[in-house]
Simulated assay, not measured.
Amino acid sequence: MIAIWDTRFSVGNALADAEHRQVISILNEIDVACRVGAPPEVMGKALESLAQSIDAHFAHDTPPRSDHLAIAASARRLLEAWRSGTPNALERRVLVNLARRWIDHMGRQEAAQPSQRMAG
């Protein structure tokens, strides 16, 4: 597993918490799929879901934050690298790094602005 949801990650906003949990779940799904050699279709759908979930989460931000844009761009680059057949595109260290950035985002960014999370 890449990460495990913990109540300490909660930002006190049900929508944001659900979106945060979803991204962690998808990262774990991708990790498991890599380990078991899942078919390309499974990997593609999981990576698309990851990029879409992150984009949807950050769509609530007005104006967009640069650190949020960077996380979303990382997820899209991961998807594009996998689609293009880039060797080692899905190395575990890449997934762990994205998860760390996501967890950092949860802890630092969301708790301070719960009203923005309800606007979308």
Rank of each mutant, 00 (worst) to 15 (best):
I2L: 14
I2Y: 11
A3F: 15
W5P: 08
D6E: 09
T7K: 12
T7I: 08
R8Q: 08
F9P: 11
S10W: 05
S10L: 12
L15V: 13
A16D: 02
H20C: 09
H20M: 10
Q22N: 14
Q22A: 13
Q22S: 11
V23A: 15
I24E: 06
E29R: 11
A33G: 02
A33L: 10
V36N: 01
G44T: 06
A46F: 07
L47E: 09
L47M: 13
E48L: 10
L50A: 01
A51P: 00
S53H: 10
H57K: 08
A59N: 07
A59G: 05
D61H: 12
D61I: 06
T62H: 05
L69I: 03
A70D: 11
A75L: 03
L79S: 02
E80M: 14
A81C: 00
A81I: 00
W82R: 15
W82H: 15
S84L: 14
L90V: 11
R93Y: 11
L95H: 07
N97C: 03
N97E: 07
A99G: 13
A99L: 10
R101C: 05
R101M: 05
W102A: 12
W102C: 07
I103G: 10
H105C: 08
G107N: 15
G107Q: 15
G107A: 15
R108E: 12
Q109W: 11
A111C: 01
A112V: 03
Q116A: 09
Q116D: 02
R117I: 00
A119Q: 04
G120W: 07
